[in-house]
Design a protein around this nucleic acid. Structure first.
Length: 272
DNA sequence: AGTGTCGCCTGAATGC
DNA sequence: TGCATTCAGGCGACAC
């Protein structure tokens, strides 16, 4: 379930292998993931150089020397691993794409459930890309704060949980970190999203707490991702149904509730 | 337009 | 043991 922290971690791991390197070979193992690979995918990559590896929300972007941009999304079960071109890399089930780079590294995209996505955005098309264009602010940038969050939630009849999952509100949160951030902010996932803003769209104190909690939870997760031993991290609420709430001086028990066909975890005592 | 639901897909866990 | 069912969830399609 790669969300922003896992995607950022993947970016940092594969950047040394891909950035400034040329594609020397691309081994495409199947015609599609969630969507078909773009036309002439291999030909449009081989021989071209990756200028940089960046991230927008849960998307990885690799602007190329050809002027096109390689877009990658890990979906829900996707992962990238790095090896050397000097020796054969062990094949795993569900390896769908293998990039050989002039850096001497191989980058392999593996995705059992195939909810992932790869696309090539034509020259000058990044700003117009239908999905990227709709993404809200980067949560760890200065563009995201209580003010922008409150404005995005103003008048929203839907729940706070659903609002945080809406990538137009803020880019990069998924089911886990949305629940974690709401817990840290002590806000109920069922609370109506509009209640964190005044009628004019100004942030209430709850919006200040929530924006700070989102940044805190994501930064902490990214830091933990880089530590191998912490990779199997435990969460405050996610998958902790029936266990005691970790908020100081709170005697609550973590509950699970289905919300828009998805399970959300929260403490009914300290989250209001 | 905003909001909620469904289906894509596979593997792990569970039920009988 | 083995087969069927359920669940996980990002995101686009679709219905209302």
């Amino acid at each position: 379930m790669p969300e922003l922290p896992e995607v950022e971690s993947a970016r940092r791991r594969i950047a040394p292998a891909m950035a400034r390197a040329r594609f020397t070979a691309v081994d495409l193992r199947r015609p599609d993931l969630r969507a078909p690979f773009p036309k002439r995918f291999v030909e449009r990559l081989v021989g071209h150089r990756v200028l940089a590896l960046t991230r927008r929300g849960k998307y990885l972007l690799a602007p190329l020397s050809s002027g096109e941009t390689l877009l990658m999304h890990l979906g829900m079960s996707g992962s990238l691993r790095v090896g050397s071109t000097a020796r054969p890399m062990r094949e795993e089930p569900h390896d769908h794409v293998r990039f050989s780079m002039s850096s001497g590294k191989r980058v392999v995209f593996n995705d059992p459930r195939r909810f992932g996505l790869m696309d090539l955005i034509p020259i000058g098309g990044v700003e117009h890309h239908t999905t990227l264009r709709r993404l809200g602010p980067e949560p760890l940038s200065d563009a995201f704060d209580a003010t922008s969050l409150a404005r995005a939630c103003r008048g929203k009849k839907t729940s706070l949980k659903a609002a945080l999952l809406d990538q137009r509100v803020v880019a990069g949160l998924g089911n886990i970190y949305a629940a974690e951030a709401l817990h840290v902010a002590r806000l109920s996932p069922s609370r109506q999203a509009s209640t964190i803003a005044t009628s004019s769209g100004a942030p209430r104190e709850s919006a200040v707490r929530l924006a700070a909690a989102i940044k805190h939870v994501l930064e902490r997760a990214i830091a933990r991702q880089s530590r191998e031993a912490d990779r199997d991290q435990r969460f405050f609420v996610y998958e902790r149904e029936g266990e005691p709430c970790l908020t100081r001086n709170c005697s609550g028990t973590i509950r699970r509730r289905a919300q828009s066909g998805r399970s959300t975890f929260f403490c009914p005592v300290c989250q209001n």
